[in-house]
Nucleic acid binder design. Structure first.
Lengths: 230, 230
DNA sequence: AGGCGCTTGTGAAGAGGTGCACAAATCGCG
DNA sequence: CGCGATTTGTGCACCTCTTCACAAGCGCCT
């Protein structure tokens, strides 16, 4: 499931805090989910809890990392060293969780040769060689939208089957290739929607604009980590 | 719904390409979703399509922007000007879609005064004044995880009710405050999971490690934009 | 050894999202 | 003016995910 990484993060935090075991409710709180859901998720990868006690933190970490394929460090190639790519190259949250940015690539030859965080930017033409040399298993696209599809095609052509796409566009890839998309502006727009809805509700219904406050109530966002009581 | 921003992006792309109307199937392709789903989504905000013709692109953009509350530019405050915050401050994808980064804040006084993209970094103590001055409606947290909760509390205290959290931790906020979380490492871990699963399937089942390849088949990720045929 | 409290694992019910398939509606053309 | 092609809007069935509630299991204390 896509919640396992969140559990893993919470488990690492608990381990750092010195806990050796944790109950499903404790872990669920730390991960921001329902405890029943968490138990069901964990039971899906084989029961590693002890009734009356809870889960062994270290053991569970090993299990989840094994399932996620994080037992070895994965090498990622980052294509597009613009504003966002630059930051991703320097973001230390990747290295600390088992990922190594092994290559920086850009189509702009004036950027080639630039050194970022100890890595030299290479031209995207070298993609094929770089992927082979560094055993790249994941490609990250941080280019402008118009270039993203071409980059994705090239990544697929040289054998990359997992792509993280920061460009605001939909990518077409063949079967067997996984694409995840992160669009920072979309996240803000979703927040804007909630903000707008809250404003419409508190305002006088008559002045809230015609029909806006009367939206069908079913328009709730799905993914939000909302209102976790203190 | 949380898909409206994606539709909006696709619509803007279509408008730039000169289209005046678009069919549900055309828009669905551009947004990477099923056409029936798209029609249902759009029907939820009042029917603005013409049977036999499709949707008026410009009209639909107006409608969606109105629902999302993007009719006026929203001001966001960015707290934490580290590696990631620095990039977000310079990311032009925000401004181009109706958001204005109106303030940069950091707890580190050695960073205060630094100028990024025309904005001066101010100390987080000034949060209250800044929020009032700039009519901040959204707060973005790009601090390290240990500082995130305190920043969130301060944001809530000064009246911010929408928070975008890049720190890898769960935030506790009172009812009525919306939090969205973006964790870049988690996205990579989900890809790693798929990569690992694909590797286990292609490898000889006997050598794939005990039980790893025999995971219950129901472990599929939900959110992935997967395998959209060319 | 036995009982008690705590926690996991899971069955079943409920809710919500998804996609098909088709009726209703609109435009263009003869 | 009528017909056919096209496209929207939606009822319905399906399916996944979520949540409650409880039996089964484990350790500790007496």
């Amino acid at each position: 499931m896509s919640r396992l990484p969140e559990y893993l993060r919470a488990l690492h935090a608990l381990a750092d805090a010195g806990h050796e075991t944790v109950s499903s409710e404790g872990l669920a709180n730390a991960a921001g989910v329902n405890s029943a859901k968490l138990r069901k998720d964990l039971s899906h990868l084989g029961s590693y809890g002890t009734r009356g006690v809870g889960y062994d933190v270290a053991l569970l970490i090993d299990q989840i990392e094994s399932v996620l394929g994080l037992t070895q460090c994965r090498a990622v190639a980052l294509v597009g060293v613009g504003n966002l790519g630059h930051a991703l190259a320097g973001y230390d949250g990747f290295a600390s969780r088992g990922f190594r940015i092994a290559a920086l690539l850009d189509a702009d030859r004036s950027r080639v040769g630039e050194q970022i965080n100890g890595l030299v930017v290479r031209h995207v033409d070298e993609l094929s060689r770089v992927v082979a040399e560094e055993s790249i298993s994941i490609g990250v696209i941080a280019t402008p939208a118009p270039a993203a599809q071409a980059v994705a095609d090239e990544l697929v052509a040289v054998g990359v089957t997992s792509i993280l796409n920061f460009a605001p566009c939909v990518l077409s890839v063949p079967d067997g290739v996984d694409v995840r998309k992160v669009d920072l502006a979309i996240e803000l727009q979703i927040l804007s929607f909630h903000e707008h809805r809250k404003a419409s509700l508190t305002a006088l219904p008559a002045t809230g604009g015609p029909g806006l406050a009367a939206l069908p109530g079913g328009l709730a966002a799905t993914d939000t980590q909302e209102a976790i009581g203190t």
